[in-house]
Amino acid sequence: MSARSPIVANIRRNSALYIAVAPFLLLFLLFNIFPVMFSAYLGFNQWDGFGDLRFVGLENYIRALNDPIFRKALSNTIFLWFWSTALTVGLALALAVIVDSYVVFGRNYFRMVFLLPLLVAPSIAAIILRMFFTSNGGLVNMLTGAVTGTPTYFDWLGSEFWIKPLVVLLVIWRWTGWHMIIFLAGLQSIPRDLYEAARMDGVGRWAIFSRITVPLLLPALAFSIITATLGGVQMFDEPYVLTQGTGGTNNSATTLGMYLYATAFSQFNFGLGAAVSWYIFAGVVTLTLIYRAILNRSQSGVA
């Protein structure tokens, strides 16, 4: 009886869809959704991974907020996310515009060369950077020593001030090429005659950039900023390897991701770690929503 109903027949006819999507959805459900649901539960409990779970309500969430290291990790993460995103996206945008419309030779060279660091794992890039910035015989100290005339043994990696800029430098080095390629693809969709017409009318370079290029590039910009933010808020590999897991002098480069890792895998406080991961998630969601709101607003303003 029910087999004859149109809905069931429709489902039958399209059964290949459900079969095709099933492996993906099952794997995702089993290894992502289920763990995350467990993490929500874990956040309200105290647990070292062995004994019984002890329900503690919001204690983990409050404890994190009261922990000075968590607060430091929060402010470090905000610093690293903001500067790495702003500088990487800014530099990539400038490079993309230069390569797209100003470069007089080597366009293909530029498209490739900035991408090479993307092939290098963040952790490996951090190892290379460490080598250059070691206090004793590192390349950077050698060069500054040569310039000033006296040998220098400055401890860049141990410096509370410099460690964060070094992490930012690492992100810029690795990611500029990626953002540049995204922008170059976006720039190609802007009709050339728009530029021609503007130039004919005597519009200056800066005005062309700010009035034509940037507004028309907004979708690519939003995509790139959101991607950089997703990475920046969850940043782990770069500061972890750069500080050899210590977080630097006085936790000067400890990020939320590293705090989460330390609570769970060094202190075996899985409940607290889970609570921290939900704070990170809240940060990601908030920032994404803010970007979307700004994007929608500016797009409706253009149209």
Partner: peptide
């Protein structure tokens, strides 16, 4: 699923694997 942050699943995923 694109917006699913990996750090959220890290701890429970580790426990699940164990």
């Amino acid at each position: 699923t694109l917006f699913f942050p990996p750090s959220l699943a890290l701890i429970p995923f580790f426990l699940q694997m164990s």
